[in-house]
């Protein structure tokens, strides 16, 4: 198991009354699997991802990456932010070099990896540009290869296709699948979009809208590269929409 989440519990004090965000959540992501956390907003999926990343401390429970327990952020877990969080004062190339510099990758090796990553993400010749000069798609690809540059064991993504228009979102998903098929990193991604979850994932984990529990763990058995059509695709869609509705109703119940 590449990523192992065991018995994670998290409460927030909400105007005095404790509010349980995650209650005894356990899951595993196998080597090279692409797993999605799906759920209505407020279900704790982003909190769980932040705990796995080490940005937030859990009240109870353990996170193991490649059999090693972790509690702080580290380069073994690459993170792709919804805002991308590219450093605006660094060029595209310097952004991608940054994790390699922090890990002390020697210069020759660093430049070689940089070239490989940029060409993999179709960003050749763009290295000198600053983030604000990049299109949305280019920013997203930069964020992906920056996260990959440090050779993480696990890639964590927080709604990486979150706030773009529909057409752009489809393109980014296809781009992401293409990049992922090239190196098959273990992925845990958060989304609230059913089609996105089916299109991207080997497994979809559905979280309930209230109480921070896992409702379902659904393997998606479709050939890659994926297509957004066909009977099986639509069966998965119906199944997940039903589950999400149930998750939402769960959340509404006091």
């Amino acid at each position: 198991m590449k990523l192992e989440v065991r018995g994670i519990h998290k409460q927030y004090a909400n105007a005095g009354a404790p509010h349980t965000v995650l209650s005894d959540v356990s899951l595993t992501v196998g080597e090279g699997q692409y797993v999605t956390l799906l759920g209505p907003s407020g279900c704790g999926k982003t909190t769980l991802l932040n705990i796995v990343a080490g940005f937030i401390a859990a009240d109870r429970g353990t996170i193991r990456v490649a059999e090693r327990e972790v509690s702080k952020p580290g380069p073994d877990r690459g993170f792709i932010f919804q805002s991308y969080a590219l450093f605006p004062w660094m060029s595209l190339a310097d952004n991608v070099r940054y994790p390699m510099k922090r890990q002390g990758v020697p210069k020759d090796e660093r430049e070689k990896r940089l070239d490989d990553l940029l060409s993999m993400a179709r960003l050749d010749g763009k290295g000198h540009l600053y983030p604000h000069q990049l299109s949305g798609g280019m920013k997203q690809r930069t964020a992906v290869v920056r996260a990959l540059a440090g050779r993480p064991q696990v890639l964590l993504m927080d709604e990486p296709f979150g706030a773009v228009d529909f057409q752009m979102r489809l393109m980014m998903q296809e781009e992401m699948e293409r990049l992922w098929l090239k190196n098959r990193t273990t992925v845990l991604m958060v989304t609230h979009d059913v089609q996105e979850a089916i299109y991207m994932s080997d497994r979809v984990i559905v979280m309930s809208g209230h109480g921070g529990r896992i409702m379902a763990d659904l393997p998606i058995d479709l050939p890659r590269p994926r297509e957004r059509r066909g009977e099986i695709y639509h069966q998965y869609e119906d199944q997940l929409i039903d589950l999400l509705q149930q998750a939402f109703v769960d959340g509404e119940r006091p």
């Binding site: 380069p75 969080a85 994790p99």
Partner: peptide, 21 residues
């Protein structure tokens, strides 16, 4: 943005490097 701190930490930056980088 808070994400910049988190990003730096997840890429292996320590306290001093967060200050300087």
């Amino acid at each position: 943005p808070k994400d910049y701190y988190d990003a730096a930490r997840s890429m292996g930056a320590g306290r001093l490097q967060i200050l300087t980088n």
